[in-house]
């Protein structure tokens, strides 16, 4: 039963990784930019949720919705102010820029909310669900359910809405998308907004199980590993990679000596890069001459 328990907590942690990874992949697919600050955006989302729910005393659901809206706005703002001037610059420059952005967000969060860890007050805190011998915290149930719901919504969005289809078009061929009249720049803002929103959602989901402080964004790096394991550029791959990393981490923590749990995500990444560099779901091909 211990194995099952581990598996479930691994999956729930993996969902969080997966959601952050989803944000990475979304931005990469649409704009070919890599947002290294995705984890820190998630951190921001968690803090915003704390402000709404703990400090302003909004009902939980309304607090979460307000958080998502604020995060969407933040994402669009980041794109407009920082990333727009970088269109056409080398990928490396954008990568560095978002690393800088990560530092900035961390400092900002520290300045606004302080460095003391906080916890998000949730209506479901501390309750458990028993399924036979397996004990499930409601927090974990909510994480898994939330991830499933979000993924379904995203799938429907990309499959059936005009906007979603336009985003796909922009991601596949910028120039052609311009030509058929898709406002590519506005799409970029929306993609950033969407990915910040997803990150904010991940922040809200993970807030009850992990303490909120300005450094919590570092899980973003693990999520990055997850995104690559899944095959950078594939949305289902991102979720799957996240789950894989989450589960491997849990088992490494139990069966391997101390220290391995922390690096297991990276070891998994390196192994993956060596045996299957294109990731689980390949989308990359080599350049044609």
């Amino acid at each position: 039963m211990e194995v099952l328990q581990l598996l479930i907590s691994g999956i729930s942690q993996g969902c969080v990784y997966g959601l952050i990874a989803l944000g990475f992949v979304l931005i990469y697919k649409a704009t070919e930019m890599v947002n290294f600050a995705q984890g820190d955006v998630m951190m921001l989302g968690a803090f915003v949720a704390v402000s709404f729910v703990n400090l302003l005393d909004l009902p939980f659901v309304w607090g979460v919705l307000a958080t998502l809206m604020v995060m969407g706005l933040v994402g669009a703002l980041l794109e407009r102010l920082l990333l727009r001037p970088m269109i056409g610059e080398p990928h490396f420059a954008v990568l560095m820029l978002t690393i800088g952005l990560g530092f900035l967000l961390r400092a900002l969060a520290g300045a606004i909310w302080g460095n003391e860890p906080r916890a998000l007050e949730t209506p479901y805190a501390g309750e458990v669900l028993r399924l036979g011998a397996v004990v499930l915290g409601y927090e974990n149930v909510v994480i898994m359910l939330g991830t499933v719901v979000l993924c379904t919504l995203l799938f429907l969005f990309f499959r059936f809405t005009r906007l979603g289809i336009a985003m796909q078009a922009a991601s596949q061929n910028q120039l052609a998308a311009y030509y058929v009249g898709i406002p590519v720049k506005r799409i970029y803002s929306l993609v950033w907004a969407l990915s910040a929103l997803i990150a904010g959602f991940a922040g809200v989901l993970t807030a009850p199980v992990s303490l909120i402080d300005p450094l919590m964004g570092f899980v973003g790096i693990k999520a990055f590993a997850a995104a690559i394991v899944g095959g950078f550029g594939s949305l289902p791959g991102a979720i799957l990679g996240g789950l894989l990393v989450g589960v491997v981490e849990q088992f490494a923590g139990l069966y391997l000596p101390t220290g391995f749990s922390d690096v297991s995500a990276y070891v998994l990444l390196l192994v993956m890069l060596m045996i299957r560099p294109q990731g689980l779901f390949a989308t990359m091909q080599r350049k044609k001459v």
Binding site: M86, M96, L97, I99, F103, L104, A107, G110
Partner: peptide
């Protein structure tokens, strides 16, 4: 006295250079 002032300034400088003087 702000915590994390130093990394913050780090980030700011990096962003400034990348946008204005690559």
């Amino acid at each position: 006295q702000l915590p994390g002032l130093e990394p913050g300034i780090f980030g700011l400088i990096l962003i400034g250079f990348l946008i204005y003087e690559p």
